[in-house]
Design a protein around this nucleic acid. Structure first.
Lengths: 208, 208
DNA sequence: CCGCTTGTTGACCGATGGTCGATAGCGTGT
DNA sequence: ACACGCTATCGACCATCGGTCAACAAGCGG
């Protein structure tokens, strides 16, 4: 009778513990591979308690990703004091560094991302935000990008994920090589989409 | 008493009916949104019968896609009598035409594609096959592509899906524009990946 | 009209995401 | 030291999922 059947924790404490465990588990297994029952068992609590803290599995998952998402935003935050081209390369470097450090989780994320609508949206949001940033830095003031240019920028973000996935999986070339290839592709794509005026603006910066 | 409890159909007939219903349902709803129970109810049969004809939900799904996959393969089959560059544009045109005709289903496919491992593999296979085709037409005989070039080609296929998705969703530019943008991006990407020798081979063809 | 083949069914299984009323840990007031 | 109450926690439960199985019956050949 001396032994308590369970230990009672404060709300914040338990939340923190669960989130910590969640990030750990989800970096090793994809979303579909983990059941709430497993997670609860791993945490030493009942499934009901897990649901008491997070209204659904998806909520738990995205809460788990919140920290990483915040870091992503911070690392890709462009430095407004620099010219657009350098802002872009800076953000890109930040992005690639982050992936390189967490390469183990990156694959799982891309996999899960597609499975869970919420994460899909999250990634889409990041893409859209990034696309806007790029377009803003590229488009001459007062004009809007033509549809092909818009499509090119959006598609380039897919290109980026594809390239990063290959890079992470094979790891047989340098991050700087990857970065240059990404930048070169973006320029090539913009040129092919007819965004000549935007390119020339960037080219001036590059040559100076 | 006179009314039979169910109508008995021939094997082929039933299979055809189910496949037809399946393609219809799956073009309107993604894989995860449909349960086998729903499908069976929609077909007016029991779930067990559905499983009698298709060993699993995934099998049913891929069987449903088989026709489309076959058409995809046929449409992107390169014409070996033509030079590599024209083979590529030809395959690309075939691909884009197919998407344009079935734009309604294309989005659902991309969504489902990611959810279902089998379809993911199917798409990956198509990507890999296409990548090999491109590399084969580009790489000088007896040499292998460098890692960055390999990554560039793979990533370009992601670019293609991203661009097609934007195109299908907004539909505010022409298929030929899209095709040219895709080709231009591929060249730009190869250039950025250091595949100069491959590019020059293509450029010669293009100028002649 | 019967029997045999086989297309077809209802009932069932284990696991999953999710819910709810009851229980019990523990800080607090006396 | 004891009782009280707040609420963190649990066990039991539910609908649905993909999937399985033995038994039934539709309809053809004799």
């Amino acid at each position: 009778m001396s032994e308590p059947a369970y230990t009672r924790l404060g709300v914040d404490e338990r939340r923190r513990q669960l989130l910590e465990l969640g990030t750990e588990l989800f970096t090793g297994h994809s979303y579909g591979e983990l059941s709430m029952a497993q997670i609860a068992r791993e945490a030493g609590i009942s499934k009901a308690l897990l649901y008491h803290y997070f209204p659904s599995k998806r909520d738990f998952f995205v809460a788990t990703l919140a920290r990483a998402a915040e870091e992503l935003r911070a690392r890709t935050e462009p430095d407004p004091s620099k010219p657009p081209l350098e802002q872009l390369t800076g953000s890109l470097d930040g992005y690639l560094e982050l992936i390189e450090e967490n390469s183990a989780s990156y694959e799982k994320l891309i996999e899960s991302a597609t499975t869970v609508a919420e994460v899909r949206e999250l990634i889409d949001n990041v893409r859209e935000l990034t696309a806007q940033r790029i377009l803003a830095g590229i488009t001459p003031e007062g004009t809007v990008a033509t549809p092909p240019v818009r499509a090119a920028v959006r598609a380039w973000l897919w290109f980026m994920d594809g390239a990063c996935l290959d890079w992470v999986r094979n790891g047989d070339f340098e991050r700087t090589e990857l970065r240059d290839m990404l930048l070169g592709t973006l320029f090539g794509s913009l040129a092919a989409a007819g965004g000549q005026s935007m390119l020339s603006a960037l080219a001036e910066q590059a040559s100076s």
